[in-house]
Simulated scan of single mutants.
Amino acid sequence: MSLSHYVVLRQGSRPTSQIEIKKSRFLGYASRTADEDQARDFLAEVRRAHREARHVCHAFVVEPDRRIQRSSDDGEPAGTAGTPILKAITARQTSPGRTELSDVTVAVVRYFGGIKLGAGGLVQAYSEAAAAVLDNARLVGRQRMRLIGLALPIAEAARTESRLRAQGCRVESVDYQADKVQLRIAVADESEDLRAAMTSLAAITAGGAKPAIGEQIWRDLD
Rank of each mutant, 00 (worst) to 15 (best):
L183K: 09
A158H: 14
T99Y: 08
R144S: 08
L3R: 01
S13Q: 06
V109P: 14
A130R: 00
A186C: 00
L86R: 11
D37W: 01
G141L: 10
A155G: 05
P64G: 14
G79D: 08
K116H: 09
M198S: 01
R184T: 10
D65P: 08
A209H: 05
A130D: 00
M198H: 05
G118L: 10
A130T: 00
A34C: 07
M1N: 01
S191L: 08
D74H: 13
E192R: 13
L117Q: 04
Q93K: 13
Q124E: 04
S95I: 01
A49Y: 13
R40E: 10
R66H: 12
E190M: 02
S2K: 03
L117G: 06
G168V: 08
R163A: 10
S13D: 15
R25C: 00
T83R: 13
A132H: 04
R14F: 07
R40H: 06
T80L: 05
A166D: 15
L150S: 10
S13W: 02
R92V: 01
T99V: 15
S31R: 09
D220C: 03
A178T: 10
Q124W: 01
D193N: 07
V133F: 00
R14E: 11
E52W: 13
V108F: 09
A44G: 15
G79Y: 07
D189L: 06
R98A: 15
D222G: 12
Q38D: 13
C57G: 14
A129G: 00
C57I: 14
T33S: 07
R70S: 10
R138Q: 04
D41E: 15
A196L: 14
R25S: 01
